[in-house]
Design a protein around this nucleic acid. Sequence first.
DNA 1: CTTCGTGCAAAAGCTTTGCAATGCG
DNA 2: CGCATTGCAAAGCTTTTGCACGAAG
Lengths: 145, 145
Amino acid sequence: MHEHDEVADLRSQGYRMTSQRLLVLRVIRESPRFLTAEEIHAAVVPQQPSLDIATVYRTLHWLQKVGLIAPVDMAGGRQRFEYHQSGADHHHLVCEHCGRHTHIPRDIVGTLRASILSGFGFEAQLNHLILTGTCADCRADHVPA
Amino acid sequence: MHEHDEVADLRSQGYRMTSQRLLVLRVIRESPRFLTAEEIHAAVVPQQPSLDIATVYRTLHWLQKVGLIAPVDMAGGRQRFEYHQSGADHHHLVCEHCGRHTHIPRDIVGTLRASILSGFGFEAQLNHLILTGTCADCRADHVPA
DNA sequence: CTTCGTGCAAAAGCTTTGCAATGCG
DNA sequence: CGCATTGCAAAGCTTTTGCACGAAG
């Protein structure tokens, strides 16, 4: 769905599309990394200096409620957020070196899921796996000697 | 390694094994769930009321430094900790319903790791995966009708 | 004895909330 | 215009830190 359609949809649901909400959403959409509230605020301030961080937090809650973003659980304690393509289950590869993330298809974990179910009777929820590691580019850069 | 050996080992490295450290470590070892600092403090206070939560935080940092526990990344924002068997890579299944966790062998993810590497050139760090879902017991309890 | 570690209290983050003012629809 | 949403400031939580005292080795 394009940004334009999303906006029209939400407006028709009675929500007000303020400049603050549009800005925060755009920053999240366009970032190649998962951002914290503070980082989002920093990215947004140059364009709208009065935008308070309290508004960023409120907007993040709202964006989660309407399903446009989802929280991401990563090391380091602070909450980060990702733009969430409506319902499309997928997984992420997050590079520890450059921080960039890539999407990978959901069925890649099918085998793992099946072996956990048969081996342990545990039904793993593998809708949204986040795997850290080293991406192809950074592996090239870090070639030992 | 048994608690007794761990203690002797750390003492020989010049660390002081105080009652506070022993208590916090025991609580973490014996819990079937991953605990937050606050939960650890609550579990420890009945046995040693003067034990301050600041000491819990300091002890948690220390336990990580000496490699006896590791932080766990889960939903919900707050940091939780697990007892970390020296160097034995493994994965966890965490049940969303009862909160209990199970260990599973590391090689279960071998296929996944290989397909991510060949498909995306991404070297996933799969030493310590935490998967949420529903355990066998809870699946039995929640049988629909 | 000599540190290292603790308790206490104060401070430092990060996030949430109350309220009057603003601006979206 | 009415009401959702914002900005600002203050409060709430969790976590960290300074310092004098206490206890481990």
